[in-house]
Design a protein around this nucleic acid. Sequence first.
DNA 1: ATAGGCTTTTGACTTAGGTCAATGCCCCGC
DNA 2: GCGGGGCATTGACCTAAGTCAAAAGCCTAT
Lengths: 233, 233
Amino acid sequence: MSNCDTCLVRNRAICSALAPEELGALAKLGRKQMVTRGQTLVWEGDEALVVANVIQGVLKLSVSTADGREQIVGVVFPSDFIGRPFGKESPYGVTALTDAEVCVFTRAAFDGFAKEHPDLQHKLLERTLDELDRARQWMMLLGRKTASERIATLLLEISNRLGSTSCSAITPFLNEFDLPMDRQQMGDVLGLTIETVSRQLTKLKEADMIALPDRRRVVIKDRRRLENIALAA
Amino acid sequence: MSNCDTCLVRNRAICSALAPEELGALAKLGRKQMVTRGQTLVWEGDEALVVANVIQGVLKLSVSTADGREQIVGVVFPSDFIGRPFGKESPYGVTALTDAEVCVFTRAAFDGFAKEHPDLQHKLLERTLDELDRARQWMMLLGRKTASERIATLLLEISNRLGSTSCSAITPFLNEFDLPMDRQQMGDVLGLTIETVSRQLTKLKEADMIALPDRRRVVIKDRRRLENIALAA
DNA sequence: ATAGGCTTTTGACTTAGGTCAATGCCCCGC
DNA sequence: GCGGGGCATTGACCTAAGTCAAAAGCCTAT
C-alpha cells in the first residue's frame, strides 16, 4: 500500500492515532483494494479474515434469515472501519453499495499490530462506542418509528454522513446528494418493503419537503419539517 | 469499595484484565452501590458522569421519543459494563429492572485510569465489539422478525444470558428462570405492545413449548422447537 | 377472609404496512 | 427512433399487529 500521505481519509480514519513512523509500519501490512458495486468483501458467518478502512464509497453490513429476509445493520462511509478484530466469525456480511476503495489488512496482522499500539486501540474503542450508539438509535427507529419517520430519519442521516465526509463543504450536511443505495436497500435498512419506501418518498415529495430529480438524487427542500418528522415528536 | 477479592463478578467483569496491584488502585476509585427496581442510574441525554460494572441484578438501557414511545436498546446482566466512557452525553437512560448492585466510578476517574491501562481498554474494546454484534442481531429482530419469532428469541436470549451468569450450572443456559422484566418491558425490548406479547406467550404455552407457572416464571419445555421459531427458518 | 389496586389476559375491531399485480419510466444498445 | 430489461411507482386488497375495552388473576393491607 505504502502511500498514506496522499490518503483521502488520512486524518479521519483510525490511522490518525499513529505517529508517522508507526504509520509506516502499519502501511506495510495493508494494501489498497478496489471493490465494485455489489461485490461482497466478507460473507456472513465466515471467519473474519480481514479488517479494513474505507477510503472511498459506501458499503453495507447485512444479516439474513434462513428464509431470505435481509436486514442491513450498518452502512459504512469513507474513513469508517470495517470488520471484527480479535477473533470470532463475522456475524454479518460486508458488501459494496457503490464502487469503493478500501485499505485492507489481514486480521492476524492487524490484531498483532493493534496489541502493540494502545493509541490505535483507543481510537478503535471510541469508534466502536460511537457505532454502538448509532446502532442503538437505529434500534429505536426499527422498534418504534412509523414508516414516514423512518424515511425522514434515513434521508437526514445520509445527508449528515455524506456531509461530514465531503471535504468541500463547511456545512456539516448536504441538502442535495445521490443516494448510495436503491429502494430495496433503503427498505432493508429501515425494515420496510420497497413499496412502502416508494409511497413514503412520494408523500414527502408531494408535501414539498424533498424533491427527487431522478432515481438516485435527493434534494432536501425543507430540512426543518423533515427533522420534525424524524424526531417523532 | 475495596473488596474486589469477594466480588461476585471478579473473574468475568473487565476488572479481570488487571493484575492484583492495579486492581487495588482501581478499587480506590469505585464504590459499591445498591439500586432498587425502577431506580434510574443515568438519564437519557444527561452528561454521562458515571460508568459501572454490574455485580448483581439486571438493568435496561432505553431510549424514548418526545411523544413517549419507548425502546429498550440493551439489557445488562451481572459482569456487564455500563456507561459511555470518553466523553459525550449518554444517548440512553439506565434503569434497574430488578434490585441490583453495581460498582460505580466517576467517568473522569475511570477515563484517566483506563488511559494508563491498555489491558483494561483492550477488554473494554472486546466487550464493546460483542455488545455491538448483539445490538446488530437485535436490529435484525426488530426490522424483520414476526411477533412469535421475537418472543421465542427473547426467551432463549434471557435463558442464555442468565445461564452464563449463574455460577451454579454447567449448562450454558437455564430451562427454568424468572423473567427480569414485566410484559410491558418485554414489549419495549421487542418493539411490540403488551397485548401482542401476552398473546404470543399464550400461543407458545398452548403449543406446549413453554410453561408459565406464574407471572415471572418461564419453563422452556421444548427448546428445539423454540430455537426453530427464533431462527426464523 | 375481603377489598382494592395492580398486572395480565382475552375479545372485538381498526389500521399501517405488506402482498400481489399492473403500469410507468429510464437508460442503453441497436 | 425503437425495443427490451431493470427499477420504481401506483393501485387494490389482505393481514399481522395495534387499539380500546372488559374481564380475570394476583398480591397486599386491612
